[in-house]
Simulated scan of single mutants.
Amino acid sequence: MLFWIIAAEIAFWIVIISGLYSRYILKRNRLSLFFFILTPVIDFALLVLTAADLKSGAPASFAHGLAAVYIGVSIAFGKSMIAWADRKFQSRILQKPLQHRELFGRAKAVYEMKMWGRHLIAYLIGCLLLGAMILYVGIGEKTFPLLRVLSGWTLVLLIDFLISFSYVIFPKRESKTDNCPSK
């Protein structure tokens, strides 16, 4: 099962890079759109493979739980991951200057809370998938690895909330040295 998760991650980045290459190098926007549309297909394929593995009688494992995490994260963060890859592609391959604006104060707090909101969406999607797997396999000892994934992810979500919310209480301030012209 772990092999399929790694294969899905590799396939995700291959289709993203292919989409960016098609868009910027080949100047074929429809082809690039085709590649970008393949990203949810990869998630669906991983979901089908996970279900098929469980149906074949494989015991529920950490890898099955990790597949649910992967799918949740991919759906919730997919668009922002593609945007990040797009910026990096333009910067590194096309040699365009990277437009990076560091956030401070309220803007940084809002950004961090939005990112935590995406994490929460990923978590909810993953919980639905984990719950479906638990119901499918049957509640009991066989599903303990799936519950371990869920409890670990719950802890990560809470820690992420505390870190993200800390920017509301203690806003990141621009340092005085950032404003000084270099000599």
Rank of each mutant, 00 (worst) to 15 (best):
W4R: 06
I6W: 01
A8K: 10
A8E: 03
A8R: 05
E9V: 11
E9G: 12
I10F: 15
F12V: 11
W13E: 02
W13G: 12
I14T: 14
I14Y: 06
I14M: 07
Y21D: 01
Y21Q: 04
Y21T: 04
R23D: 01
Y24D: 00
Y24M: 03
K27D: 09
N29M: 09
N29L: 04
N29E: 10
R30I: 07
L31P: 06
S32G: 08
S32W: 06
L33F: 14
I37G: 10
I37N: 06
I37V: 14
L38C: 13
T39G: 14
T39A: 14
P40C: 13
D43C: 14
A45S: 11
V48F: 11
L49P: 09
T50A: 05
K55Y: 15
S56Q: 01
G57S: 02
A58P: 11
A60R: 11
F62T: 15
A63T: 12
A63Q: 13
H64G: 08
L66R: 15
L66S: 09
A68D: 00
A68L: 04
A68T: 03
Y70Q: 09
V73D: 03
S74Y: 10
I75M: 12
A76M: 02
A76F: 08
F77M: 01
I82S: 00
W84A: 14
D86T: 01
D86V: 03
R87V: 06
Q90N: 11
Q90C: 14
Q90K: 13
Q95G: 07
K96R: 13
Q99S: 08
H100Q: 14
H100I: 08
R101W: 09
E102C: 02
F104K: 05
G105H: 11
A107I: 05
A109P: 02
A109M: 12
Y111K: 13
E112I: 12
E112Y: 01
E112C: 08
M113W: 08
M113V: 14
M113E: 03
K114S: 12
W116F: 15
G117L: 09
Y123E: 03
Y123P: 00
I125E: 06
G126P: 00
G126T: 02
C127K: 06
L130P: 05
L130W: 05
G131Y: 11
G131K: 11
G131R: 03
L135I: 15
Y136F: 08
Y136L: 04
V137L: 00
I139F: 11
G140T: 00
E141P: 05
E141N: 06
E141D: 05
T143R: 07
T143I: 07
L150D: 10
G152L: 04
W153C: 06
T154P: 00
T154F: 14
V156P: 00
L157S: 05
I159N: 00
F161R: 03
F161T: 00
L162A: 12
I163M: 07
S164V: 14
F165M: 02
S166R: 09
S166E: 01
V168E: 03
V168L: 04
I169A: 08
F170V: 07
F170W: 13
K176P: 05
K176D: 05
T177K: 08
C180M: 13
S182H: 13
K183S: 13
